[in-house]
Design a protein around this nucleic acid. Structure first.
Lengths: 249, 249
DNA sequence: TTCGATTTGTTCGTATGTATT
DNA sequence: TAATACATACGAACAAATCGA
């Protein structure tokens, strides 16, 4: 979506969009901050205000920027209600949605396995951090997940930092490490609960669980997190194509 | 997406968009056909060409209309490569994608169960048609699904018609019944393969399978199909958030 | 092959409306 | 109230793709 390539070619509005994306990636404007007004940016890039708006349109459509009439245009934050469910697709079968309560089970430095390295686009054996959590919904443990991130991107991430964060995990990445998760892709399958999962979720072994393998990306489609979640779907479901509710509303 | 309400209020471009959607829903332009040129539509609606383009923009973004520079703007069809994978989210774990081969197992008229009625927004007991299929990938049966549609919307749909269709099921809905599926929503869970599924997919009973409950919608968020699929995910996966590849590319 | 008509794509500029501070 | 910022609407000019004469 953010049109990966620097693209010195192509339509003007795409070059402007690419330039804005580069600045966002470089951290020129912090999350939650307003970027300069459309008039100011149009002057700076020497394009018409219409062209600049078109460049911002796509970034706004991708939830990278958020416009507010009368106020300005802001770098999207992972701490707003609007965004919270954007990366959490689980709901109760009766339709009720609720944010999970996290519980850290383990936090360890390690070296990337082949699968992790492939997902993260790094070399096998590269230093990573591994975290395991249970997530509770309605007080019951329903999700068990393992998170892997490249250690190089999260210098200073310790168990204490992780444990004492306020808000979401992606909010922590963003506020503390300047890493902005803007997109995820997920691959789902049904499997028998492995022992560790069964234990964490208080399930009989071999209960079917939904396995979600997620790769989270920042600007320019750079992977920054690999996460495998095991879900108890006896009372809950995974929602796909909720996007319509996002785009319009 | 198509802004359900007739909305005599709101911005001009939305009213134009709603008017276009009403015409599409009424079948004014057939799938694959070109709609009038932007200039002609602008004249007709008495709006500027920019306003008209903005109205069409959203319909094009929602894959309802397809623009082609130099040719015109067309009603999206379910028979183009572009669309085929839009509603089929299964891929081999190594990433290879392939379209399934359908095999009809049964075709019956019946009355809607409570669950079906709820999904389709009709009264329980309303006449429906039920179809069961196995879908093969790489020659192996991997998906077992049950499709339910309101009989009233598909007058003339018989087993022979269904069986001898060319192209996809949604292509049949579109070409033969003027029903245009423009959006789906899916809810996923992991369950033990029930006997019918296990038999159809040659699985040991109680193998974990991925269950996908889909509601397909036409214009104005009117549900037209309820489908439950059971997937063997030992070698395949369900892909979520492939949309990024759709919107841009 | 060339040319011209048609259609969508891009870019510019201006004016006015609406929300926020 | 006034200033600021985004939203809507209009119109014009040219570019690029397509198609048929």
């Amino acid at each position: 979506m953010p049109t990966a390539s620097p693209a010195p070619t192509g339509p003007l509005y795409r070059r402007v969009q690419a330039a804005l994306t580069r600045r966002l990636a470089a951290g020129a404007w912090k999350p939650g901050e307003a970027i300069p007004s459309e008039a100011a940016l149009a002057r700076e890039f020497k394009v018409s205000i219409g062209t600049l708006r078109k460049a911002v349109d796509e970034l706004a459509a991708g939830n990278i920027l958020v416009r507010q009439q009368g106020r300005g245009t802001f770098v999207a934050t992972h701490s707003e209600d609007r965004t919270l469910f954007h990366f959490f697709h689980i709901a109760r079968k009766d339709g009720a949605r609720e944010l999970p309560v996290h519980e850290l089970l383990s936090f360890r430095a390690a070296k990337a396995s082949a699968a992790e390295a492939g997902a993260l686009g790094i070399g096998a054996g590269t230093p990573v951090l591994r975290m395991e959590n249970t997530l509770k919904l309605g007080g019951k443990p329903l999700i068990f997940d393992g998170i892997v991130v490249p250690a190089a991107l999260f210098k200073g991430l310790t168990e204490a930092v992780y444990r004492t964060r306020e808000g979401t995990i992606y909010g922590l990445y963003q506020a503390r490490f300047g890493i902005n998760v803007i997109r995820i892709s997920e691959r789902l399958s049904a499997e028998s609960a492995p022992p560790a999962t069964a234990k964490a979720l208080h399930l009989p072994t071999h209960t079917p669980v939904l396995v979600v393998r997620r790769i989270a990306y920042t600007y320019n489609d750079t992977p920054v997190e690999y996460r495998v979640s095991w879900l108890d779907t006896r009372e809950h479901e995974y929602l796909s194509d909720l996007w319509k509710g996002d785009i319009r509303e």
